[in-house]
């Protein structure tokens, strides 16, 4: 008897809840006339960002490519005259990408970032292949102020040995002082 009363009460509550929702504001929006708000952490179109000095952040370490579960990232390392690594080409096949964000997690330099843009449909699948020129943006993306070479011991143009964070000036190996 107790159970039957509980069941009837549950049905009434459900009916009431449904009725109440009829008068609340709808969560769905009239996309595309109206654009929904997407949080910055939303995992959409992938971009390559630049460091605060405007240089490419990507150092072509290949970690994004290796972590990618669908293997849709391919790149080739090259280096400038001063030893700074950067990708000679950087290609993402978005027709394979599952927007999982593993590349962003693996990136040691904050270069690769997912953005809240998901509007990437194409009539021709070939157009889903993005090269570096399509991926590289002018700004720093979500993570501001980080420059990998400022914390790593490799010297590049305008940043000599010993000038990175937490580094002592290069030692004089010919010194015999204690």
């Amino acid at each position: 008897m107790d159970m039957i009363l509980k069941a009837i009460w549950s049905q009434l509550v459900t009916l009431f809840e449904v009725l109440r929702h009829t008068f609340t504001k709808a969560d769905t929006v009239e996309y595309p006339e109206e654009m929904p708000y997407l949080a910055p952490r939303y995992r959409g179109r992938i971009v390559l960002t630049r460091d605060p000095d405007g240089e490419e952040r990507c150092v072509a370490c290949n970690l994004c490519a290796v972590v990618c579960p669908v293997d849709c990232i391919a790149l080739q390392k090259t280096e400038d005259d001063h030893g700074r690594w950067y990708p000679e080409f950087f290609r993402i096949n978005f027709s394979r990408c599952i927007m999982c964000g593993m590349c962003e997690e693996a990136c040691p330099t904050y270069a690769i970032q997912l953005t809240p843009d998901f509007e990437m449909c194409e009539y021709d699948r070939q157009n889903m292949v993005y090269e570096k020129e399509h991926l590289l943006i002018s700004g720093q993306g979500k993570y501001h102020g980080y420059s990998f070479y400022n914390v790593s011991g490799k010297s590049i143009e305008d940043k000599d040995k010993g000038e990175a964070r937490n580094e002592a000036p290069p030692v004089d190996v010919r010194s015999l002082l204690p």
Binding site: N62, A65, V66, C68, V70, D71, C72, I73, A74, L75, F89, R91, I92, N93, S95, R96, R125, Q126, M128, V129, E131
Partner: peptide
């Protein structure tokens, strides 16, 4: 077993 880029290496030539 961890080779990367299988679906992107040749995608500039053809996405297939």
């Amino acid at each position: 077993h961890r080779a990367s880029g299988r679906t992107a290496m040749l995608a500039d030539v053809s996405v297939h």
